[in-house]
Simulated scan of single mutants.
Amino acid sequence: MVAILLVEDDPSVRTGLELALTRQGHSVTARTTGEEGLEYARARRPEIVVLDVMLPGLDGIEVCRRLRKSDEIPIILLTARGESLDVVVGLEAGADDYVVKPVEPAVLDARIRAVLRRAEKTPMSRSSFGDLVIDRAALRVTKAGADVHLTPTELRLLLELTRHPGQALPRGHLLREVWDHGYAGDSRLVDACVQRLRAKIETDAAAPTLIQTVRGFGYRFAAP
């Protein structure tokens, strides 16, 4: 059973998803505003937050951004069809994945389980890349001796990239291995997560030396 915080202001959508996810065996707590959702998430720390983008008052993007300042809790965004800007901004704010409305409960359940699987996998061994040290057993990343705080998705991406140092990995491979998307998913998930990861581990995110872009293909992590 997964403890889910659902933040959705539309009564019919909220009730439908709450019932469907409960039938899937999850424990669902619903909130209707961004302020209520943020307060609950900080106080009770659910296992995952499912967050509508278009909320009254404090919108979903800002809730996501504020949570990310102090917490690595997994976040899935609910976004309206065709709202590409919301998707990009939400991913850059720290969301782990997104689902387009109208939401199929089975799809949302699969995405929830996939995000949580990424958080639970624990590869072993330790590797160093300059002053960046990755302890795979402890799931701990340090740079110049200081802890680097990563979300589960950012950590999974870093682990996958560093598992193949010097090798160019296509975006499709990263979507399958990091996001568990068994189809041609949205490459914006990869690009936004790379951008967030660079900001945390690169000396200069504007001129990255660790995570290198292979134009028109994907990304390569610098060889040690």
Rank of each mutant, 00 (worst) to 15 (best):
R117T: 05
V63T: 03
E36F: 14
E72C: 04
R136S: 07
R196D: 13
S127F: 14
Q195L: 13
S70L: 04
S127R: 15
P56V: 11
A222L: 07
R31T: 07
S27A: 04
R176F: 09
P170M: 05
V103P: 15
G172F: 07
I211T: 00
E39K: 08
L5W: 02
P208M: 05
H164D: 10
D180H: 12
E62L: 11
P102D: 15
G34R: 06
K143C: 01
D204G: 07
V63M: 04
L161G: 08
R196F: 10
E92M: 12
I134D: 01
R23Y: 11
G82H: 12
A138D: 12
G166D: 02
E154T: 06
S127H: 14
S125W: 15
T203I: 12
L169M: 02
K101N: 11
S27Y: 02
V7A: 02
A114W: 08
G57T: 03
T142E: 14
K200V: 04
Q212E: 10
E18N: 11
R163T: 07
Q24N: 12
V7M: 02
I61D: 10
S70G: 07
A137G: 15
E177G: 05
V89T: 11
V148E: 09
E104Q: 09
R215W: 12
R44K: 13
V103K: 14
G185H: 07
C64I: 01
H26I: 01
L169Y: 02
I76E: 02
E104N: 09
H164Y: 08
P208Y: 05
E120I: 15
E39M: 06
T29M: 10
P74K: 00
V2P: 05
V133Q: 00
T142D: 12
V190W: 03
R117M: 09
S27K: 04
V63Y: 01
L169N: 02
R215Q: 11
A144I: 14
T203P: 09
I76D: 03
R215D: 11
K121T: 10
M124A: 12
L78K: 15
R163E: 07
V115T: 02
R176I: 04
R44P: 15
A110G: 01
G218S: 14
V141I: 06
T15M: 14
Y219F: 02
I4E: 08
D109A: 13
V115C: 01
L17Y: 03
L161E: 05
V141E: 01
P11T: 00
S84N: 06
P170A: 03
I48N: 10
L174I: 03
